[in-house]
Amino acid sequence: MEFVIKHFKELSTTELYEILKTRAEIFVVEQDCVYQDLDDSDQDAIHVFGWNDSGRVAGCLRVFWKDHDEAEILPI
């Protein structure tokens, strides 16, 4: 699996679409967790995601900086 680390501004539209599609499949459909996923936090996050052999995003997370020297990883 290839992992990619990018700030929101660096994501291509295809990468963002695949990340959001994966999040919807996992959290909304599989876990039946209906909530507002687009929470205005993506723009401030570092996005870490992995492509599988089928060209799909197989996993992703967001990293938020508390300050310059400390990061906080929150579930997405």
Rank of each mutant, 00 (worst) to 15 (best):
E2M: 08
E2T: 09
F3N: 04
F3E: 09
I5K: 12
K6F: 06
F8N: 08
F8M: 08
K9E: 14
K9W: 05
K9Y: 11
E10W: 04
E10N: 09
L11F: 03
T13V: 13
E15I: 07
E15M: 09
Y17I: 01
I19T: 01
L20V: 14
A24I: 13
A24V: 14
E25D: 09
E25M: 03
F27D: 05
F27T: 10
V28N: 10
V28H: 13
V29D: 13
V29G: 01
E30F: 02
Q31E: 15
Q31P: 00
C33L: 09
C33W: 14
C33Q: 07
V34I: 15
Y35P: 00
Y35I: 15
Q36C: 11
D37P: 01
L38W: 06
L38V: 15
D39V: 02
D39E: 02
S41W: 10
D42G: 06
Q43G: 06
D44K: 14
D44N: 11
I46A: 00
I46D: 07
V48F: 05
V48T: 06
F49M: 08
G50R: 10
G50S: 15
G50A: 15
N52G: 09
D53F: 04
D53Y: 06
S54R: 14
G55M: 12
R56G: 01
R56T: 02
V57T: 02
V57N: 01
A58M: 03
A58T: 14
G59S: 12
C60V: 10
L61I: 13
V63Q: 10
V63A: 03
F64C: 09
W65M: 09
W65Y: 12
D67W: 04
D67H: 11
D69W: 05
E70W: 03
E72R: 03
I73T: 09
L74S: 02
P75V: 08
P75G: 04
